[in-house]
Design a protein around this nucleic acid. Structure first.
Lengths: 232, 232
DNA sequence: ACCTGAACACCGTTCAAGT
DNA sequence: ACCTGAACACCGTTCAAGT
């Protein structure tokens, strides 16, 4: 896992597969992302991936130790794609805001990959670049090193945690998602004021608020509290 | 799903299983939690659950629509256990803080259940009580209804998102967890200052900070920003 | 050196048949 | 009414055998 920082030279002597495909880590990761994008949550199995690639499933074990290792590569690719076109403005608060929103949005474009990979440290190229960028923004803002690291941690974990949460929700089968919205409209909205006064009083707001993501607000709260600490 | 608010009277005429067990939703959920607690991440399969209960796996489908429905029941039970002994102090900020920390800690006692259930609205009894309690704290603090609902959403989703993230990490196989710590100690700590100045400058802090949870800090930042909004 | 194919030990879910 | 058992359509992973 640690030797992926420099991806290393291509393997020698690669023989094409029976169906004429030349395998590579890159091709496998891209096919995995395509598979997830096209066929949803449960499409990423090594058997289907082998089928989509035109190779025997067991051939993949020459490129990845197993599904877990494959997953980390897919997650890292997702980080890379999210940040490929990001540019800093020089305003630390605005830069962290746009970075967070990008990673969150990127996760939602491939919910199934994000929900699987969000809680893992990949140690791969794209992740490392993101870490350096975010630390740079915080140090540049004037936070002393230990505080910058703590805020980095809170910012990154908050972003990834919400990305995973919202991605998991987006990745639910249609029926389950509709059932969730229905729970707010029926179960909660119909609770009597006598037993649940605060739910009853705010149920109108709950119905509209809860199907949205709370990440933008949580992000603004974090940045505003961080700004408050900068002055001290 | 919505008819679980009042659990309803017990089913009639329950015949014991071949091995003499009388099944019930309660018994199934408790056995599921025990299974997860004892044998970890992947132990919760309907086949193993049937075995542990002393019933044919297919019998469970009389109590739950499928694994998904079972999961929601397990998640709700977890919320209930986390908050069973919680008592308010009357100080909104302290109460939200202790509630958040309890839910987060509760999730970590059964990481595998938490990571599966954290992103779902269950609409079940324990969840509903938690919603009412948290909304009550925020309304009591003086936030107007729409703001209370927004803050409720950010607070709850942040808590559940971090719970799932940290639980997923805790649920990793030992080898994968050690590999993660190793990534910070080796891959990151060895990056040259020439190419990654900020990582190099702070790597000592990263190594100690990153294996911990960022939730307590993220929670304090959220509460402090919320307090700042109260004054306006 | 690299891919293949069979094998192993599992899954979730359905449904006709038993009691 | 409720549990059972067989069946179906899948999984991830390993490893000896092929090319």
């Amino acid at each position: 896992m640690t030797d992926r920082v420099v991806p290393g030279p291509a393997r020698r002597r690669r023989r094409p597969t029976k169906r004429g495909v030349v395998l590579s880590e890159r091709l496998i990761v891209e096919t995995a992302l395509r598979l997830i994008g096209e066929h949803g949550a449960d499409a990423l199995t090594v058997r289907r991936l082998g089928l989509a690639l035109g190779a025997d499933p067991s051939a993949l074990y020459r490129y990845f130790r197993g599904t877990d290792d494959l997953l980390l590569a897919v997650a890292d690719e997702l980080i890379g794609r999210s940040l490929a076109t990001w540019r800093p403005t020089g305003d630390w608060r605005e830069d962290l805001r746009s970075l967070g929103l990008r990673i969150h949005a990127g996760a939602l474009t491939h919910p199934q990959a994000a929900v699987l990979g969000a809680c893992r440290v990949t140690g791969r190229v794209h992740e490392i670049r993101a870490v350096e960028t975010i630390l740079g923004i915080l140090c540049g803002a004037g936070f002393p090193d230990p505080e910058a690291v703590r805020l980095y941690h809170a910012f990154v974990d908050q972003t990834l945690a919400f990305a995973a949460l919202d991605a998991a929700n987006a990745a639910l089968p249609r029926s389950a998602r509709e059932a969730e919205a229905e729970v707010w409209r029926t179960t909660y909205a119909r609770l009597p004021a006598a037993t649940h006064p605060h739910i009853a009083a705010t149920s109108r707001h709950l119905v509209t608020q809860m199907p949205r993501s709370a990440y933008p607000l949580a992000l603004d709260l974090l940045l505003s509290a961080a700004a408050g600490r900068l002055g001290r």
